[in-house]
Nucleic acid binder design. Structure first.
Lengths: 66, 66
DNA sequence: GAGTGATGTAAAGTAGGCTTTACGTAAAGT
DNA sequence: ACTTTACGTAAAGCCTACTTTACATCACTC
């Protein structure tokens, strides 16, 4: 699961720590998300989309055809 | 997490079993999803959206302000 | 009224999302 | 040189999404 979290976070001038606070998750979760290490829950994806003011589809791109 | 899975599934004339096959998950997962018992992974949400030809935001509605 | 198909519940197990803690490194400031 | 800030890794643990199996109910058909 690719995503634009790092790019959008930096656009908005947030550190990973700030983003993790706003999303109420750990910094580890942000790091792992940005690295594409795992696929977030739908709830977290909604939170991110809301904070970034974009659609989930704009931010996340599922790895082909699974 | 509310969703319109049951409604759309019935619109399309699928049984729970058929839907579970198309999505490659168990029938239990479909039942639990339709009952709102848990929040799917983002990958499963993408699969459902693709199959239903709608956006994730059209199908799922997160429970208020979490 | 026995058989079949669709929906549902219950319970035990597996896998992975997410947390917590601890440590490493590089850049910048003092 | 030391401190601070931001980013990163590693490992152990918790919780829950999801699986599997088994069984119950209802509607329909034969």
């Amino acid at each position: 699961m690719k995503n634009l979290i790092k790019e959008i976070r930096m656009e908005l001038g947030f550190t990973q720590g700030e983003l993790s606070e706003k999303l109420e998750v750990s910094r580890q979760t942000i790091i792992s998300l940005e690295k594409g290490r795992y696929n977030p829950s739908l709830i977290l994806a909604f939170k991110i989309a809301k904070l970034f003011n974009r659609s989930i589809e704009d931010i996340f791109e599922p790895d082909e055809v699974e």
